[in-house]
Amino acid sequence: MTILFQQLSNALALGGVYALVALGLTLVYGVMRVPNFAHGGLYMLGAYFTYAVLNGLGVPYVVALLIAAVAVALLAALLERLVFYPLRNAPHVHAMIAAIGVLFFFEAVVQRIWGADFKQIAEPIPGILNVGGVVITWQRLLVILASVLAMLGLNFFLKRTLTGATIEAMSQSREGARLVGIDVNRVGMLTFAISGALAAVAAALIAPIVSVAPSMGEVMNLKVFAIIILGGMGSVPGAIVGAFLLAFAEVFGGFYINLDFADVIGFAALVLVLAIRPQGLFRRGT
């Protein structure tokens, strides 16, 4: 029973991180109709920025997380301007190839500056919390709480503010949004910035648990693309449900069957869902 709860906390923490990264990707897809293959690169940069700010400035962990989030948000908005905006009228495959190029570029730059070896970020609150025999590390608890908080904040922004509504409006009808006077370029940049900030927060949260390496972006890319395909491209609830489904499949599959099978189980679930519902769990079939 104790072990079950520990696996549960592992799955919730992993799912929270997946959800934050996948939400940004699905928002950008909804607004731009282009899969941003550089998204994993933004996640990876978030981890390195956190590492650099922590070591360089010696600020507290939370401050480093926020600085990394703002920095990656600005970079993501710049990415929209420099890469996606100029290619807006080109065939979609151009933007996809450009995004993959950006991903490799980020990796190369990071490797040049920080090297290819793993970096460690110390846990801000070391140790574990023990509640009646159920053990959870403080960091996992922090990951779960912070990711839930970030998701609630995003939900409030999308559902309760006019600026948030412009993002949903644009993903549902781009021309309709233009006709009511929404500046689609501004919304595009804003959506990229939000996706970058969410990816950086996720990376800063998980970095003390996993190691930081240049290749972490590619691995995350694979997972979050699986998640938003699972949940339905562009769907916000789909990204969250997909993220936790994949995390639970990986953690419990890895625990009860074999750790080596963790990734296989996640992708087997993806294949299964696509065979039954090709449009994803949360997207209306058209």
């Binding site: 949903e168 009808s173 309709g176 949004a177 006709l179």
Partner: peptide
């Protein structure tokens, strides 16, 4: 008010 309406269907 365009042909095909171009509403935001889920809102």
């Amino acid at each position: 008010c365009p042909e095909g309406r171009l509403l935001f269907p889920d809102l």
